[in-house]
Simulated scan of single mutants.
Amino acid sequence: MPPITPRPSGWRARLRALVRELGKFGTVGSTAFAVDLLVFNLLLSNGSETLTAKTISTVVATTLAFFGNRYWTWRHGEHTHLARQYTTFFVLNAVGLGITLACLAISHYVLGDIWPALRSQAADNVAGQLVGTALGTIFRFWSYRKFVFRATDVPHRDPAYSPPSP
């Protein structure tokens, strides 16, 4: 009877797993961003109203991100109720967007009153696209992992192993 293959332990194994997870999360997010940009611009070029186009492109991209994360990034996580998971994912995505908007608002409207240079387009891009997106992405990664795709602690077993009969 083959032994159970032990799971690698220690901080190095956890760090390697976290880096793989972050890489997959980043790949899914980058793909979703590209799809959002593509769908938004296709809809605009075909005469859609701006807010309608952005709403549709965001729903399409968020849905893609949900399924990419569910079936690739966190494929070993809990997958019990698709509708509840999808709704939670959307809500947490909205919170991540709120973080991005808060960074932009603080920079532009609060700090911009003190330093007018922070009301420029370049400053808005730094605050919203760089700082806001970075903080929102950190929140999304943490919250998806904790609330949407919770890890199940399934022991890693050798596929050839079968437990002995009593």
Rank of each mutant, 00 (worst) to 15 (best):
N93W: 03
V28T: 08
L64T: 01
G10L: 06
K146Y: 11
T100Y: 07
S30Q: 10
L101C: 09
P3A: 15
V60N: 09
F67M: 09
V95G: 08
S165C: 12
H79G: 08
N46K: 14
D113Q: 15
F33V: 11
S165W: 09
P116Q: 05
H79T: 00
S9W: 04
G26I: 06
T55V: 10
A105V: 04
I56D: 01
N69F: 01
A83L: 14
Q129P: 08
Y109C: 06
F147W: 14
L44I: 15
D158F: 03
R16V: 10
S165P: 07
T137V: 02
F139E: 08
L97V: 09
G132C: 01
F25L: 01
S120T: 09
L18G: 05
P3L: 15
T5A: 13
G23A: 05
T152P: 13
A53E: 07
E21T: 02
P164R: 12
E78Q: 13
N41P: 01
G132S: 03
L38G: 14
A160S: 15
T5Q: 12
R14F: 09
G112H: 06
F33A: 15
P116L: 06
S162T: 14
R12L: 13
G29S: 03
E78H: 12
L101P: 03
R119N: 08
A53W: 02
D113I: 06
D158M: 05
I106H: 05
T137S: 12
G23D: 06
L42I: 14
G29N: 04
Q129S: 12
P8T: 11
A102D: 00
V131R: 01
V19H: 04
R20C: 15
V154T: 12
H156W: 08
S120Q: 03
Y86G: 00
N93L: 03
T58K: 03
A13M: 08
R145C: 03
V60T: 14
D113M: 11
V148R: 03
L22D: 08
K54N: 11
